[in-house]
Design a protein around this nucleic acid. Sequence first.
DNA 1: ACATTTTCTGACTAATTTAGTCAAGATTAA
DNA 2: TTAATCTTGACTAAATTAGTCAGAAAATGT
Lengths: 151, 151
Amino acid sequence: MKLSTKGRYAVMAMADLAGNSTSHPVTLSEIALRQGLPVQYLEQLFLKLRRQGLIKSTRGQAGGYVLAQHAKNIKISTIMAAVDEPIQVTRCTPNSEYGCQGRPEQCVTHNLWEGLALHILAYLNQISLEDLSNQPVRKCGKLKPMRGKSL
Amino acid sequence: MKLSTKGRYAVMAMADLAGNSTSHPVTLSEIALRQGLPVQYLEQLFLKLRRQGLIKSTRGQAGGYVLAQHAKNIKISTIMAAVDEPIQVTRCTPNSEYGCQGRPEQCVTHNLWEGLALHILAYLNQISLEDLSNQPVRKCGKLKPMRGKSL
DNA sequence: ACATTTTCTGACTAATTTAGTCAAGATTAA
DNA sequence: TTAATCTTGACTAAATTAGTCAGAAAATGT
């Protein structure tokens, strides 16, 4: 059960954008530098984010990217979906070679995985970019779970 | 965010074992047949499950595998861990090339991913093999979320 | 007009992971 | 002994990941 860099980088970059693009557009190289990510990989991701209407771009000098919506309204789940990071815990399609092709007795675990996927989605859908910015800065590695809307 | 077949197959096979090994050991080929999984792949998985003390094996004729503990006490999270299916949503190690190497300001998303991992683990840790067996049989594809301890 | 900065886009690729297969041995029961 | 079964490591084809490369297009400053 892994999260690929695609999803992780996208959220990192969007969080950066949320915090820094308030007055003027932010360039990819700025973000790449601040977050320590490869620029040319970000280009790919931002293309998708723009096509999904999450960000707006300005070309040329003094250009860059800005959020297309208020940070409060952009959910983590939306970002993940935009860069093709699906929450995929079952391969129970009608045509799959293995799995429960219409054989309900083989499907004991199906509900388990479906439930897990719903669980994850609900979690990511409840947290917005704004929530990320508002949390207290904390050293990496020394993690204590938060109360309430636990990040 | 994907679940690999390793974790999925392991849970499927263990659930099968829980339901069928009450009176006598169950062979891998039986499980493979019932669940529609490749035998030789299951061998690999069962090796790990045995080494982690989740199942017991008997060799020779009439041999096979049995649960080493009561189904009630075997949590899904334990099975996943046993076959090396870690819940990995961050790569925030001290030596990673990208990520937040001691730079706390770059770590806005860290708590998010840690929280997600905890969330997933809690979910998988709350469900036992017995829970899987006790749920009502239901056609694959027609899924309605359950109440209470939602599978 | 021109140079510079920036986004935009598709094609390509090396490394890793996944999802197995293959082959040979060890152990036990009949 | 023979057949069934687990045990184990080595191997591999295919897919995915995580990028890189190259160049076009657009906007801006001089």
